[in-house]
């Protein structure tokens, strides 16, 4: 509980110095929770399955973005457009998730670093496709998506035609993204239900001990792949929800930070590399984004430079992950040597 408490205090101090009104912050937080919760949620299943923090959700985010690019190219709009994007993104996410799972099965014990490098690698491929091939090898109907030179997607794509199409579905005049929250709650319930099924039980067993699980006849590799597929698909949906809420799409940057911010959020909420529940997801997302809102202004007011606040929140994101990883593996190593000495004293 120490980590969240520390960040609660930090946020309160930041809030005080930012000079922002509670009303404004509340509005912002509602929006940001709606935008980010599904992305953070996508980390849960791999953690439970013992695969650590899945930085590979970047690939899921890419799948979501491919969905967006497809509907923009074909001119689908509104909620229908959003649904089609989901339909396009989901199979891509399943395939990518399967590949990520396969690769992580070859790198047992170092899933985190591997999934991270995999994210960087996939980013290279993504750029290759959408900067170099788009418009040249891959024909585009909608020329507005392309740069003036005719090849490569623009850096930013306007998503006004699908903006808030989920948020405001059925409640077109509400200032709050009600439908998105409904979906988020449904997805949380979905995860809860999956964990209560036999497959969920197998995931927990694999997460605790791959060896015992496999002796009991559980197909460990397959279970791990399923976990990563679920995670990747959720990340794709999460990215779509994020983008329809934002209304603009940074073609080459949006996905890059997805893994970093989601992982930092879940850790700030008090999750660890091998333990998590929905409470940590919600609390962590809340705290991380609260810090996001207040830190530039607090930086401005304390040090006279908004840029410092900007740097500070990036530092927080990296630092939290670094410290969490250090503490986790320190604990693990201590446990190992403690066990040895403990037995000795008893014998």
């Amino acid at each position: 509980m120490l980590v969240p408490i520390f960040f609660i205090i930090l946020s309160i101090v930041g809030f005080y110095f930012s000079g922002l009104t509670g009303d404004f912050v509340f509005q912002q937080m509602i929006l940001r929770l709606a935008r980010n919760l599904v992305l953070v949620m996508s980390l849960m299943i791999p953690i439970i399955s013992g695969m650590g923090l899945n930085f590979g959700i970047v690939l899921g985010a890419m799948a979501g973005q491919i969905g967006i690019i497809v509907i923009m190219n074909n001119g689908y709009t509104g909620f229908n457009g959003f649904l089609i994007a989901v339909l396009v993104a989901t199979p891509i996410a399943i395939i990518l998730g399967y590949l990520v799972g396969k690769i992580l099965n070859k790198a047992k014990g170092k899933e985190m670093i591997t999934s991270m490098i995999l994210g960087f690698f996939a980013n290279g491929i993504y750029q290759l496709i959408f900067i170099i091939f788009a418009g040249t090898l891959i024909p585009f109907k909608n020329k507005d998506l392309l740069r003036s030179s005719g090849d490569g997607l623009r850096n930013t794509i306007d998503l006004i035609s699908i903006k808030s199409s989920l948020d405001n579905l059925l409640f077109p005049n509400s200032p709050y993204p009600i439908m998105t929250f409904v979906v988020i709650i449904l997805l949380f319930v979905g995860i809860y239900l999956i964990l209560k099924t036999k497959v969920g039980q197998e995931m927990r067993a694999v997460g605790q001990s791959m060896h015992i699980a496999s002796v009991s006849g559980i197909d460990v590799d397959k279970t791990r792949i399923i976990a990563i597929i679920i995670s990747t698909v959720l990340a794709a949906w999460g990215q779509l929800i994020y983008l329809q809420n934002m209304g603009t799409f940074n073609t080459y940057n949006n996905h890059e930070q997805v893994g970093l911010f989601a992982v930092a959020s879940i850790l700030i909420g008090g999750a660890s590399v091998n333990k998590v529940s929905w409470k940590e997801v919600v609390l962590g997302t809340f705290l991380f984004h609260l810090l996001f809102i207040v830190s530039p202004l607090a930086g401005q007011n304390i040090a006279g430079d908004a840029q410092i606040g900007e740097y500070f929140r990036v530092f927080i994101a990296y630092g939290v992950i670094g410290v969490a990883l250090i503490l986790h593996s320190w604990e693990e190593n201590k446990k190992k040597s403690l066990n040895l000495n403990f037995d000795l004293n008893n014998s």
Binding site: G109, K110, M112, I113, M116, F315, Y318, G319, I321, G322, L325, I326, H328, S329, W330, E332, N333
Partner: peptide
């Protein structure tokens, strides 16, 4: 203190 996880930890310490 973090034997076995040097690469992952190192990466994030570096970023921090």
């Amino acid at each position: 203190k973090v034997k076995g996880q040097e690469m992952t930890v190192g990466n994030y310490v570096g970023f921090s």
